[in-house]
């Protein structure tokens, strides 16, 4: 039983490798490429010539599991799960250095935001902290119409990481001391928020 399962896995690997080798993307590959090309930022992915000028100047590449150019290559090979569960899409700091220099006009940071969205919807998120941040941020905005830092701060406090917790609490106190932390929630008319969300919430 176990042996058969192993050989099955092996077989699958072989067929996958073959599909890449002969350059005929499987149906699903093509689907993923097409899907990405429709996303904001994905329009030019087939233009990539893998020159590496994105990776060379990337300030956060040290914390990525795949470099920007590798992510593009993986998309072009249809490796959907690997791309969406990569840390790269969450580590990108959206500084637009790569997009500014890309000779083929690939808008990588915008693509990263689109892929984050996709990863959240497909439940393939690998980096909870960042995706949670997005969720909390959204919740706060949805509640007040503007940012309310203390609430976001409290939501974000990660009690499992003591050092970070300590630093963040200290940061909060520091801000509070200089009068930069407003505890009062912003007061604006927010009745429109829900109607707008309803209209713009796709899927």
């Amino acid at each position: 039983m176990r042996a058969r399962k192993l050989s099955n896995e092996k077989e699958q690997l072989v067929t996958e490798a073959k599909a890449i080798q002969i350059g005929v993307p499987k149906e699903s590959m093509r689907d993923f490429i097409k899907e990405v090309m429709k996303m904001p930022g994905g329009e030019k992915i087939l233009e990539c010539i893998q020159c590496g000028s994105c990776a060379g100047g990337c300030p956060t590449i040290f914390a990525m599991d795949y470099s920007p150019m590798q992510i593009i290559k993986m998309i072009n090979l249809g490796m959907k799960e690997k791309v969406l569960s990569s840390s790269t899409i969450w580590v990108c700091s959206l500084c637009y250095t790569c997009a500014t220099r890309c000779p083929r006009n690939v808008d990588f940071p915008t693509l990263m935001m689109s892929l984050r969205n996709k990863a959240i919807r497909e439940n393939l998120v690998n980096n909870c902290a960042k995706s949670n941040f997005h969720r909390y941020f959204f919740e706060v905005i949805n509640k007040y119409g503007r940012m309310h830092v203390p609430e976001l701060f409290v939501k974000l406090l990660d009690i499992t990481n003591f050092n970070s917790l300590l630093r963040n609490v200290r940061l909060g106190l520091r801000l509070f001391k200089t009068g930069k932390l407003q505890l009062r929630a912003p007061k604006i008319e927010t009745s429109w928020v829900s109607s707008m969300l309803e209209k713009t919430d796709q899927e």
Binding site: Q50, C51, G56, I61, S67
Partner: peptide, 11 residues
Amino acid sequence: KATDTLLGKQI
């Protein structure tokens, strides 16, 4: 500053 794209290493 560059990347050796074959090694995947920063230079």
